[in-house]
Design a protein around this nucleic acid. Sequence first.
RNA 1: GCCCGAGUGGUGGAACUGGUAGACGCGCCGGACUCAAAAUCCGGUACCGCAAGGUGUGUCGGUUCGAUUCCGACCUCGGGCACCA
Length: 857
Amino acid sequence: MARYNAKESEERWQREWHSRNCFLTPAVSDKPKCYVLEMFPYPSGRIHMGHVRNYTMGDVIARFKRSQGFNVLHPMGWDAFGLPAENAARDNVSAGKNSGTHPREWTYANIHAMRSELQALGLAIDWTREFATCDPEYYKHQQKLFLDFYKDDLVYRSEADVNWDPVDMTVLANEQVIDGKGWRSGAAVERRKLSQWFFRITRYSDELLRALDGLEKWPEKVRLMQKNWIGRSEGLRFSFELSNLTRLDVFTTRPDTLFGASFVAISPDHPLTEELAKSDARLRDFIAQCRKIGTAEAEIETAEKMGYDTGLRAAHPFDPDWKLPVYVANFVLMGYGTGAIFGCPGHDQRDHDFASKYRLPILPVVVPEGEDPKTFSVAKEPYVGPGKLANSRFLDGLDVEAAKNEIASRLEAQGKGKRTVNYRLRDWLASRQRAWGCPIPMVHCAACGVVPVKDSDLPIKLPDDLDFNVKGNPLDAHPTFKHTICPTCGGAATRETDTLDTFVDSSWYFARFADPTAADPVNREAVNYWLPVDQYIGGIEHAILHLLYARFFTRGMHDTGWLKLDEPFASLFTQGMVLHESYQNADGNWLYPEEVEKRPDGTAVAKGTGAPVTVGPSIRMSKSKKNVVAPMGMIANYGADSIRWYMLSDSPPERDVDWSESGAEGCWRFAQRVHRLVTEVEALPPPGAKIGDGVLQGSSLDLRRATHGAVAAVTDDLANLRFNRAVAQAYTLANAIQQYADADGAVRREALEAIVLMIGPMMPHLAETCWEALGHETLLVDTPWPKADAALTKSDSVTIAVQVNGKRRGEVTVAIGAPEDLVKAEALRQDGVVRVLEGRTPKKIIVVPNRIVNIVA
RNA sequence: GCCCGAGUGGUGGAACUGGUAGACGCGCCGGACUCAAAAUCCGGUACCGCAAGGUGUGUCGGUUCGAUUCCGACCUCGGGCACCA
């Protein structure tokens, strides 16, 4: 008996599928379509286990849908712009290799290497649609979209306080600043005032929020994260009159607490602050102090409230004689609302901290149910719950909601205020001071200002000679790139040297896949057929950044006439990470798994030296901790199918999975076992053999039931992405095939064909080999998915549990739908029941048909 | 601090709308085959108990004939947001 040779089989079928063009996507057709997409990879050079898990899941769905008769689009491409390529070039510079390898060379070499690694997984991908975002043929269209967005006022240039990453030497979007640090470099982000390019994502704040409700096939968690990120809050915007007769706009969500106000505070970055600072040296010092704390991340959490009394006084909107001091306060952000607030210390923690420090009045104006307004105190801590208004003149006695409405109505009537909705979401700062990105197709002309490049001049290509031996952006330092003529007046002008954030590249690639050779950014006929993506799969880490930007871009492309839809991804799945144990020697140095030897007693030692090794917890695979396992090595050992199987089994797909060598071996053993089941079977009738008309019994009937039960279960599990359960079902069916080895030949054939077809999407090479061994001339990938016979998934009898007072005391097997009296009688006859009842008469017997009997004694 | 999510054997995890807790895998134990080993096959495996039986889904309480599932409080872990007015 021949062992299954995974290497040979995998190479063979990959060749076969390729030469028969099995995975070329058929053109637009009347067939129902299914667009399956996994987040495309950054070409770092080598695939990792996370890729394997992600692309295996997508591949299973693509193959499954294909076998169910769908027209499937399953493409692959490369998110190919980005900093690592530039860093590699710089590393070459420091290594003395003159101006450095061009990032393009590094990137395409990596793509080449990773493509063959992905192909070794046997993915059912239409490789003719492959592209990289750094192909001029791709970013040309992105530049066109940028110009269209500019025309539609979805792109603008503005001077603003921006996040500056001093290590990567570029600005960052708000979404890319995490805990005050750059998302890539980890460096503390500084604030700088610079002129930058923005996407007007806030045009869709409300729509992006409301449409989340319609994304029913997205994880609740992701929707919630986006909801919080957009951060809608309803409130009131109104103005205070200042002592110098200027007006100061504030925003509040608690207008009901206006009579509890004891100060007004403005941001250190507020225009009024800047105005006042011109003639106030102490205020200038104060502002400088605020800025310093703002950038030292560790201090942010503990930062104390600081204020500076400007000497200005604001009149209370309902009492001109009531004057409130105006402070500049470090906790007021210019980026939210109007950059100015009124402080009500009785009902807000921050205002309370501030008022306590500066000895300002702290008045309760909302009193909780059951408290006496005369004695209720907020001196120690603010009260933020519901209640009735007090000490608030015409509001007294109203509840919070009613009071909010009353104040808003009165201020609106007086023309002093307006109900408004505020969002936390800011416009997307999308320009980067980087050379390896999509050039922004704009020109700066001394006479005409900022002028868009003509469509006919696209693409604005990156130069072939970039010198990384310079400070700052090599594109800016390039001798000729930026010198051009103005598209409007024809005079000498300067080209924009900033490039687009790489998140722009990934914001519309899914649309390009519909027809990657289209002369326009998208082929409208193709996108109308293929979009939206029916199943999108990727990591949770993109819950906000990529997924929000792509939703924005889709709307922008809708408004500029390229797409007819608003939501790019109908269904989203976020898969868990791949973990591995970590190992450290006595010196605290990390060791690679292959440097460690496990002892039978559970301890571990370093290979070769035998020095003791501490086995740490399973954590996300990362190069720094060395707890990585190279997919290609595992494929060489166990075959791609076993590794794919491993990635699908055991853990639910949304949860993290722990990599272990023994687990991989188990998968390999199962692959061998399936192969044996198929090849060692004797005297199987030929393909297409009919199962006899006679009534089946014994093993034959049991095996048929097992087969059809498994088909029904696996079909359901795969449709719902429950890969781990589908895997378990496959094991169960394999066990049944072994158990009922004496079943009728045609029944055994049916069972074997079913298991082979069902593991097809998961272990495609093995399945193909087995399919052939079963005597089929056509490929398994061209074979339709098996159908379960409902009559066989149901038995005509059922075993139900018998409980006494809720505790299981026995079980009875009865015909389905057996009369209650019969079931009761059977139940009462059970040994365990008789023993426990000890002659007592049951008070009550509950019979749930076909489910359970519970005797209450 | 606020907002989510999760706690089930030695282990990863099953359990449909409240109805036999632990499917299936890994590991472990025993057996068969073998000169032996590997591979494979068969059997066992929540805990206590000789057994009858008892106890068990983070903890405490509640609803119910019946709760891993529903409700309340708490504990632990994971994630997100964080002066957002």
